[in-house]
Amino acid sequence: MLEALSLSVSAGVPTLLWGSPGTGKTSAVKALAESLGWPVEVVIGSLREPSDFAGLPVVSEGAVRLAPPAWAQRLATTGHGLLFLDELTTAPPAVQAAMLRVVLERVVGDVPLPAGVRVVAAANPPEEAADGWELAPPLANRLVHLNWPVNAERIARGLAAGFARPSLAGFERPATARQDLTARATVSAFLQVRPALVLQVPKGPAAGQGWPSPRSWEFTATLLAACAATEAGPDVRAALVTGAVGEGAALEFLSWLENLDLPDPAAVLADPASFELPRRSDRAFAVLTSVAAVAVAADDKDTWEAGWKVVAKAARAAPDVATLAARTLAARRPAGARIPAALLELTPILRAAGLIE
């Protein structure tokens, strides 16, 4: 969980630690901030009013502006830090509603928080919190939920020799553009296979946890890229995906991912002649989407032309899938790149897609 927390925070995904009172959630967040040398602003929802997040209306020079509280001004001035929303389930519904824009967009009143400010929250289950409230589904969907473990051996060892500090791997090795694009292509391919999982608004107790939506699937892609960058283990990846989209959707996605066995898009672009399009439509979609994404991210004419060779070869077996990759390549032509000969094979497909007259 310490590694998952660090990866999520480093990727800029708002994170919520769930656990019983007194289990070290707050200490872990403060230890992460201390390791980074970042300031941390602790805000407890039960002690705040909606105006502490939405801003206090102030008349200035004939206009009304929403003035932020002091903690937001300090973070905006510093330019980086952790905004720690502690005891989240003690915040009443009106305060939770005011937090929505703060959590995802990092805007407090009329003041935007810098990109270097990351949002972390902690909560006790409502039945264990003082005057606890269920987490509203819109707020829950803006967070990645991590269940904080309590292990007797770890606690005993920590008391004797000191507790482990959060890993900083995600901050030291951020995801590259290629890893990010490959992760997005992978999630996109899964949703082509399981479109029913794009959006599933929960009801009942599950509403306060992670659930599938376009936003949480985007979180999933970001977290997959972070896991790839740091070579995180399967347990960390499973915890992050489950925290983003919930147990049911995560189980399906992780099972599908385990059996996907995709080739490295960079290797495919390096040798287009040896590429063989997978027969499974989801694998074919994932491969071509990631190849096209990596080809345009390189912004290099040779790589771009190699992408067209891959698409042309794939078009013979799966023209509909090849069309999507062709759209990506056609929209991002590098400077100095000539029209590749492979385009001649794609003329009917490109005309059907409306890319040429």
Rank of each mutant, 00 (worst) to 15 (best):
E345M: 08
Q192C: 10
V144Q: 02
A273H: 09
L288F: 00
A292L: 10
R118A: 14
N147F: 00
D110G: 06
A335N: 06
A292P: 03
T347S: 00
L47Q: 13
A160Y: 04
V311H: 03
T15R: 03
A140H: 08
K301T: 15
V107D: 07
S8A: 08
F163Y: 15
P272S: 14
A249I: 03
S10A: 15
L100G: 05
A72W: 01
A225P: 01
S6L: 06
A33V: 11
T182V: 15
L224Y: 09
A286N: 13
A228P: 07
P137T: 08
G246E: 01
G158A: 03
E41K: 09
A229I: 00
D52R: 00
V144F: 00
A72T: 06
G243F: 02
P319N: 14
T26G: 13
V198E: 15
I356Y: 02
A315Y: 11
L224Q: 08
A352D: 15
A326V: 06
A169D: 01
A4S: 11
A293R: 04
I155A: 14
L36V: 04
L223H: 01
V268K: 01
R332Q: 14
S274I: 01
Q73G: 11
V59I: 13
R194D: 11
L251T: 13
E34Y: 15
I44D: 13
S6T: 10
A177C: 00
A123M: 02
V40K: 08
E218V: 06
V9T: 14
A115M: 04
F190Y: 14
A286C: 12
S8G: 11
V144D: 00
G62F: 04
D235N: 03
S51A: 15
R351M: 08
F219M: 12
A306H: 13
A337K: 10
P93Y: 07
V198I: 10
D264T: 05
A315F: 12
F190G: 03
A76Y: 01
L100F: 08
V103A: 02
L47M: 11
P69W: 08
D180M: 12
T328K: 14
E61F: 05
R194F: 04
A318R: 15
A221H: 05
K203F: 07
V198W: 00
L17H: 08
S10N: 06
N151D: 14
L355T: 06
T186L: 07
V43N: 10
T303F: 09
A284N: 11
K301Y: 10
A160L: 12
E252D: 14
L85G: 14
R280A: 15
A76W: 01
D110F: 02
G45L: 05
P214I: 06
W308H: 08
V245A: 02
G307D: 13
